[in-house]
Computed example of a mutant assay.
Amino acid sequence: MTYSENAPAASLRSGDGRQRTIGIVACSAEGAALCYRTICARAPALLGPHAHPEVALHGASLADYVVALEAGDLTGVGAIMLRSAEKLAAAGAEFLICPDNTIHAAMDHVRPRSPLPWLHIAEVVAAEARRRGVRRTALLGTRWLVDSAVYPEALAAEDIEFLRPEEDEKDEVARIIMDELVNDIQVPGSVTYLQGLIERLRDRGCDTVILGCTELPLVLSDKNSALPTLDSTRLLADAALRHAMG
């Protein structure tokens, strides 16, 4: 989303003239940091130089999430997310985002018990895909995410088809994400692999690609992708800004 630098800030705030405090439930440091930086970088176009809504961030250890994911324990994943939610509510957050696609698989366990409302990353991405007129999108992310119902449900609600990579491709993307990107390691050969995979998905009939891991936008964008990208990290940041402004 592109914001108008000339838009009056008062018209973009909540009804009482106050900006809502954003709570970020962090999972991986890289994805959370990119989302936070995006919020802070894009807000001045709305609010003036150096201004952004208040942001509270809490991150449990990524290792705790990985243990629960490897055990297939979505209730456990949800419990970790809820602990962050409780801490962010106590810190003054008024709504929550989670810049991690994978753990949205636990959202059914989270939303009914949460002290605060959530923006759902896949719902945000699917809404943008509909706005762009996407018909069939490719889905990249961890194997946990790609094999889950997170995006199939969100895309089905918008009547958009999707395609997963082949099994060996899922494994390699997952390795690149978990061994490299979440650890702030960017390997040129891995980027080349991802670019080649997107070309293959284009040839299989996809018209866009969802960067369904919040670290993938660190190395992929419209500039180096054979398909237009749906950047889940920055789309979530944009949605959070819109919601904070009311």
Rank of each mutant, 00 (worst) to 15 (best):
residue 91 A to W: 14
residue 106 A to Q: 00
residue 85 A to F: 03
residue 94 E to Q: 11
residue 91 A to L: 14
residue 133 G to E: 02
residue 131 R to G: 01
residue 110 V to E: 01
residue 120 H to G: 07
residue 97 I to T: 07
residue 113 R to S: 08
residue 112 P to H: 09
residue 76 G to F: 09
residue 91 A to Q: 15
residue 107 M to W: 09
residue 99 P to K: 09
residue 82 L to S: 04
residue 117 P to E: 02
residue 109 H to E: 13
residue 84 S to R: 00
residue 118 W to I: 10
residue 86 E to W: 07
residue 87 K to A: 09
residue 93 A to L: 07
residue 64 D to Q: 09
residue 78 G to W: 02
residue 128 E to K: 14
residue 147 D to E: 11
residue 75 T to V: 06
residue 116 L to W: 06
residue 71 A to D: 05
residue 77 V to R: 04
residue 73 D to V: 00
residue 128 E to Q: 13
residue 125 V to H: 04
residue 91 A to H: 08
residue 131 R to P: 03
residue 115 P to K: 06
residue 86 E to F: 00
residue 83 R to I: 00
residue 131 R to T: 12
residue 66 V to W: 03
residue 94 E to R: 01
residue 119 L to F: 09
residue 88 L to C: 09
residue 68 A to T: 00
residue 63 A to N: 02
residue 69 L to F: 05
residue 87 K to D: 08
residue 63 A to W: 05
residue 73 D to G: 01
residue 132 R to K: 15
residue 68 A to M: 08
residue 84 S to Q: 01
residue 130 R to A: 12
residue 115 P to A: 12
residue 118 W to F: 11
residue 107 M to F: 07
residue 121 I to V: 15
residue 137 T to K: 05
residue 129 A to Y: 08
residue 143 R to C: 10
residue 77 V to A: 03
residue 95 F to M: 03
residue 78 G to L: 05
residue 147 D to I: 01
residue 143 R to Q: 13
residue 122 A to H: 08
residue 66 V to I: 15
residue 101 N to R: 13
residue 86 E to C: 05
residue 75 T to P: 00
residue 142 T to R: 02
residue 78 G to I: 00
residue 98 C to M: 15
residue 118 W to N: 04
residue 82 L to M: 07
residue 104 H to T: 14
residue 96 L to F: 03
residue 63 A to P: 00
residue 147 D to F: 02
residue 141 G to D: 12
residue 130 R to W: 04
residue 143 R to Y: 06
residue 110 V to H: 01
residue 64 D to P: 02
residue 81 M to A: 13
residue 122 A to E: 09
residue 86 E to L: 11
residue 123 E to H: 09
residue 68 A to S: 11
residue 118 W to C: 03
residue 98 C to A: 14
residue 108 D to G: 13
residue 141 G to V: 09
residue 62 L to D: 04
residue 82 L to E: 02
residue 110 V to R: 01
residue 79 A to E: 00
residue 63 A to R: 12
residue 87 K to I: 12
residue 135 R to L: 15
residue 103 I to C: 10
residue 86 E to I: 10
residue 72 G to E: 03
